[in-house]
Write a protein that binds this DNA or RNA. Structure first.
Length: 472
RNA sequence: GCUCCCAUCGUCUAGCGGUUAGGACGCUGCCCUCUCAAGGCGGAAACCGGGGUUCAAGUCCCCGUGGGAGCGCCA
């Protein structure tokens, strides 16, 4: 049997982090077994499905690097097939037309809730031989659920789960307008697409029994189920739009690398011993459904930040640089224009002090633009009264003929020694002068990247500032 | 209300009958240091409660409690 998994989102919103993890698990499992991963868009709800949402899902998958072998399939394009199966079930007597009005159903439900029993269809039309005389509405089609016995779902992560068939009512599989509903199309599609492993959120565990029964009515064996636990927000609550960056694309915009998001996601509900950082190959090699946790997990944003930094520091610089360029662009800086320093060198220098690409872009801004104002506190502390030091630096750095970190370092050290001060007393004024604030990579590296000309101009500006503010 | 699922540090987790209950993030002490980081070495921090089973229970069973999900002509 070849392994086939599928990711089947409904296009009613963006691809959120929980869906992304489900997709990742499906993808990993298929890759691990040399199987097939299919993408299916569950858009049978014409009211709520939107093309924007479809694009958002496709974009999210692509950004994460989750490629699929088949699809995307759209359920709205398979209506003839569903109609065909529906006819067969009607003919077989495993489904029936129900003429109950929505009003009747609503009052039935209200009554049951008032009596504190589980709301369910009462089977009113189940044994009808012909339409009732007053049948004015277009009938829905219901699945004829077995009345007695149990339905057992063998779930790979939850274990054996038994449902009393009496708990499962006759669910609607086609609406009054003839369009099929979720529990039915899922079954038909998984069957037609030969899905071997259904990996999805455990909010579907209850549906598994209904679906298994439909499959049985169709004479088909159910797939292997794996219901993975939910992902909760930081507070342990269900994920919602209010929880901040719930969309995968928001993570991109916030400066996370897809590698970090993937790694973070794979460790949510899954572990391989004590290992925290996984390459894609390692994930594929080690991933197994049997190692998936049974309980829900909460988001831990600071761990994502840590992972992101690990990847910023270790991924090939050219790769990180490409992502950084995007965020510099967001700041109105075009690193491709050639004026600025080498992007990869910036990545090397800034990665150990950046959690995200947004931070990295922001703190690298000064390489491209001279500071408009100095950080107030830093300027007063390091610039005020530093005219002599800055003047000395100006001449020492002007004299550097081979502008390299090593030679710069020598020049700066020379000034410190000549002034009988520690390196910090010299480095900090430079830092404020060139970066505008008290923080930057090592001063020699910073200056090398900035370039000699810009360094001298900024030092001169800082000297002027120090003179102007001296009397105050 | 009914049905189903779940329960180890604050969080992510290892553990698969015998462990000083391990790792990671975060927090924190020290070291390194031109700033900020990164890095190195330490520290605090957990088996939800009660019953069983067993020579032995975080691990198996039951109950309770607490979370979560489902109960649509949504998916």
């Amino acid at each position: 049997m070849t392994v086939t998994t599928r990711f089947a989102p409904s296009p009613t919103g963006f691809l959120h982090i929980g869906g992304a993890r489900t997709a990742l698990f499906c993808w990993l499992y298929a890759r691990r077994h040399g199987g097939r991963f299919v993408l299916r868009i569950e858009d049978t709800d014409l009211e709520r499905s939107t093309p924007e949402a479809i694009n958002a899902i496709l974009e999210g998958m692509s950004w994460l690097g989750l490629d699929y072998d088949d699809g995307p399939f759209y359920q709205t394009q398979r209506f003839e097939r569903y109609a065909e199966v529906l006819e067969k079930m009607l003919a077989d007597g495993t489904a029936y037309r129900c003429y109950c009005s929505k009003e009747r159903l609503e009052s039935l439900r209200a009554d049951q809730q008032a009596r504190k029993v589980k709301p369910r269809y009462d089977g009113c039309c189940r044994e009808l031989n012909k339409p009732p005389v007053d049948a004015t509405e277009s009938p829905v089609i219901r699945f004829k659920q077995p009345l007695e016995g149990h339905t057992v779902v063998e779930d790979t992560v939850k274990g054996t789960v038994a449902f009393d068939n009496a708990e499962l009512d006759d669910l609607i599989i086609a609406r009054g307008d003839g369009s099929p509903t979720y529990n039915f199309v899922v079954v038909v599609d998984d069957m037609d697409m030969q899905v071997s492993h259904v990996i999805r959120g455990d909010d579907h565990l209850n549906n598994a029994a209904r679906q298994a029964n439909i499959l049985k009515a169709l004479g088909v064996n159910p797939p292997i189920y794996a219901h993975v636990p939910m992902i909760l927000d930081e507070a342990g609550k269900k994920l919602s739009k209010r929880t901040g960056a719930a969309s995968v694309m928001d993570y991109r915009d916030a400066g996370y690398l897809p590698e970090a998001v993937i790694n973070y996601l794979v460790r949510l509900g899954w572990a391989h011993g004590d290992q925290e950082v996984f390459s894609l190959d390692e994930m594929v090699e080690h991933f197994d459904i049997s190692d998936i946790n049974h309980s829900a997990s909460s988001l831990n944003p600071s761990k994502l930040e840590w992972l992101n930094q690990q990847y910023l520091m270790t991924l090939p610089r050219a790769h990180v640089a490409r992502h950084l360029a995007r965020h510099l662009g967001d700041l109105g800086i075009d690193p491709a224009l050639g004026e600025g320093p080498n992007l990869e060198a910036i990545v090397e220098a800034q990665a150990p002090r950046s959690k995200t690409l947004v931070e990295m872009a922001d703190s690298s801004r000064f390489f491209y633009e001279a500071p408009e104002v100095y950080d107030d506190k830093a300027a007063r502390k390091h610039l005020l009264g530093s005219e002599a030091v800055i003047s000395a630096l100006l001449s020492a750095l002007t004299a550097v003929s081979d502008w390299q970190a090593a030679t710069i370092h020598e020049a700066v050290m020379g000034v410190a020694e000549a002034q009988s001060v520690k390196l910090g007393k010299v480095a900090q004024p430079i830092r404020v002068a060139v970066a505008g604030g008290p923080v930057s990579p090592p001063i020699d590296v910073t200056l090398e990247l900035l370039g000699q000309a810009a360094t001298l101009v900024r030092l001169e500006s800082a000297r002027q500032w120090a003179i102007e503010h001296a009397e105050a």
